[in-house]
Design a protein around this nucleic acid. Sequence first.
DNA 1: CTGAAAGCGCTTACAG
DNA 2: CTGAAAGCGCTTACAG
Lengths: 327, 327
Amino acid sequence: MAGITSADVARESGVSRTTVSYVLTGRDGVNISAETRRRVRETAIRLGYAPSAAARALRTGRSDLVLCLLPDWPVGPVIETLLDELADGLSGRGLSVLVHHGRGSRPLTDLWRAVTPRAVIGFAPFAEDDLLAMRQAGIQVLGTLGEEHQPQPDLPSRSQLEIGALQVRRLAERQGARIGYAWPPDPRLEVFARDRLLGVQRACSELGLPDPHVLPVALDVPAAVTAVRAWREQGVTAVAAYNDDVALAVLAGLRAEGLDCPGDCAVVGVDDVPAARLAAPPLTTVSQSIEVQARYLAALVLADLDGSEEKPGHPGHGLHLVERESA
Amino acid sequence: MAGITSADVARESGVSRTTVSYVLTGRDGVNISAETRRRVRETAIRLGYAPSAAARALRTGRSDLVLCLLPDWPVGPVIETLLDELADGLSGRGLSVLVHHGRGSRPLTDLWRAVTPRAVIGFAPFAEDDLLAMRQAGIQVLGTLGEEHQPQPDLPSRSQLEIGALQVRRLAERQGARIGYAWPPDPRLEVFARDRLLGVQRACSELGLPDPHVLPVALDVPAAVTAVRAWREQGVTAVAAYNDDVALAVLAGLRAEGLDCPGDCAVVGVDDVPAARLAAPPLTTVSQSIEVQARYLAALVLADLDGSEEKPGHPGHGLHLVERESA
DNA sequence: CTGAAAGCGCTTACAG
DNA sequence: CTGAAAGCGCTTACAG
């Protein structure tokens, strides 16, 4: 029931627990004979010893876990890739990534105290006091954007704004474009949608375009048809969609109405999901080089682990347009 | 740095740590005056006390965490929903779901010892000795299918087989159908693809259809076109795809070749992702009622938590065909 | 009704 | 080069 403890290993190999600990945690300062080292290691393996992380965490106040806190919203392939790459970058140093979806909303405090992570990466802003408490407990706290200092919750995110701007710049290449904005059906996405739309609106006004015509678009054909008809009445000829899923819906609505894309109406998505290149027509979309973000995040965590003062330089948000046929 | 401990709360409220523990963990057996209870609770809140889960885990050998172990493969919206629903079902009882993606492949042992979870849910089979070790440590071990007893790793999964069979049964409604199978590009998906294909093959032979013509289909138009041409040469008129993503690629290949779906070739996917209903034509696909699975999984964990002997009944895999236009 | 004390398994100064 | 001992923060028999 109890499992093998370091005491078992010590007894079996005829040394003290101290020595076992020194050998297994690989402290170079202490000199232990190669023979002893070998024997301890061998015994540990033979017995199937794995240190109790609870005890270690209690003793050192720190574990080898990196906790990713995802909010309530649907994750999608982009975040998923980010998480994978992050885990990749960290595993080499013995750090494991654990992900918590915001759903089961136990107080945040319970969670990080339960995990005693080395670092917490938040995909949405933390409350001020949570942040303080974690910092005080010696936990490294990062935002998704890799900003050590939490972005102001009420300030629009720079990269979200930029996404909207990139969409409009492409759409505005069409003469006399009248922009529509396809708003996502899931209310949990509003945080991002607001900033992306703001980016669209600002870009429109900068380019002397009229304000975009915003319409919610649920992910089914009838809803998309309704939106498309409304846009047509307003003279909309170019639609920026919240993301690729919504863009796919707009495409379906256009098809159902017998309209040509991009001829009658151009569409730009966000994310470059696998389905984007397979759409009819293939979807022009804004993509983030997510691997770069992941590497940067991993580098930040590792820099802190090494206690190094200098932080790795921010790689920028790496947004770019993937040009296909829909716009 | 250290944070507030139960000793702080005890001192502040003028009682012993014992009393604090009794009040806060809500032991009914012990009688403590309402006044004392109130005072302790109030002090705990005022001080911002949150118990150290590391210490609690060390002492009790158990935490309030449920660890989900995902293999290496891309997750997709179905698993994501499952995870969300699971978290939902468990949070009411103070259990938090933590997800680990197989990527950073530290030994499994390190991971569960680090987390000391109440239950581990594996989305792919465990090695025999890992399973034993976890059981011995008093951890409840479940498979995704909710099977307490780990499915034989070398036995094809019943629900995967059934998926393939459902696809073929639909496709076979077409007179003289010749079936193709669209194999996924990601090698990590092979575990599932093998079983689904096996289901397809068995169904074909049962229905007196020739063996399916298997072709890999990468998620881009040129690859899909290549596959579609090869299928045409073989006289294939109906394609079962590994999942919706692959099916979308086949659809794109058909379109690029100027072929009609389902006229020239029918297609059936798996998963019913949001993009499926928005495809051209809307995609017929096999869907699992994932909420049911999630509720069942949650019920299993909770039953164990309550120490109840009777297990909730298995709801079946809840597979069904979503009929749209592509087949 | 409440407190003193042991112990979960580890790490780490401190002695030898 | 190695060991005895303290202590991380909690829970829980056991006394009073």
